[in-house]
């Protein structure tokens, strides 16, 4: 459905809406630009922007790893007042996170300061045929993408930091409470493409681990249970 069709039955047309938006935006921009900036962007900032512009590489390997890192980097905050949350769930004795369940996605919201070294977690077992094809590592986030010709998965280790939100899924899903090495976990299965997320938080409540992919549930659990802190 295009913009015009969406507005059938309303008392305003696409053209009228465009015109009022144009006028509204002009006023908004004028009010922003009327206040002079009271600082000059730093040299460090300009360098960072230049590095971003120069950092073009590896087209074609954006997939889940890119989305995952970008989502966490942006740490998007959902406006809780405007979205219907169907359930809010806090778990474990040391509550450092909450799970907010929406009709078609789930948010994990973390609290507290990071006190774990996520680099100490290693993946002990990878199914035959799957190879590491991309990865990203920072002090607070490590993401690894494994792929074969037919299937793949992404595993991420996120250090729990105040305000970080992780979104699972963007369509309707089925969820099930499960266990990984004795720790409570959540398994989500997308009802459309059968992709899955297995999500849990380490025993000290400091690191969130998420395996996302199209591999079988059995393989996902074997990988999950092979993860151990060094």
């Amino acid at each position: 459905m295009n913009c015009r069709e969406e507005l059938l039955g309303y008392s305003f047309s696409a053209e009228e809406l465009y015109a009022v938006c144009d006028h509204y935006v002009a006023g908004m921009l004028a009010s922003i630009e009327a206040v002079p900036l009271d600082f000059e962007p730093s040299a460090a900032h300009r360098n960072a922007i230049q590095r971003l512009i120069d950092g073009s590489l590896r087209k074609g390997k954006r997939h889940a790893l890119y989305r995952r890192v970008a989502a966490i980097a942006a740490a998007a905050i959902i406006l809780f007042g405007t979205v219907m949350v169907t359930n809010v769930h806090a778990r474990e004795a040391v509550v450092r996170w909450m799970r907010l369940i929406f009709p078609d996605y789930v948010l994990y919201r973390f609290f507290g300061e990071p006190d774990d070294d996520i680099s100490r977690y290693t993946i002990g077992w990878i199914p035959d045929g799957l190879e590491l094809v991309d990865y990203y590592e920072s002090p607070t986030l490590r993401v690894f993408h494994y792929q074969s010709d037919e299937e793949g998965f992404t595993i991420s280790f996120t250090s729990i930091e105040d305000g970080v939100i992780i979104e699972i899924g963007d369509t309707e899903y089925l969820s099930q409470e499960v266990f990984v090495n004795g720790l409570k976990a959540d398994l989500y299965i997308d009802i459309y493409d059968q992709s899955k997320n297995l999500v849990w938080v380490t025993q000290n409540g400091s690191t969130e681990i998420d395996i996302e992919g199209t591999i079988s549930t059995d393989l996902m659990f074997q990988i999950a249970e092979s993860i151990n802190p060094q």
């Binding site: 590095r51 971003l52 512009i53 120069d54 950092g55 073009s56 590489l57 590896r58 087209k59 074609g60 390997k61 954006r62 890119y66 890192v69 970008a70 980097a73 990203y136 920072s138």
Partner: peptide, 11 residues
């Protein structure tokens, strides 16, 4: 850090 993510400015 994020530079490694940018992929679309090819030329």
């Amino acid at each position: 850090m994020l530079a490694a993510l940018l992929l679309l400015l090819k030329t």
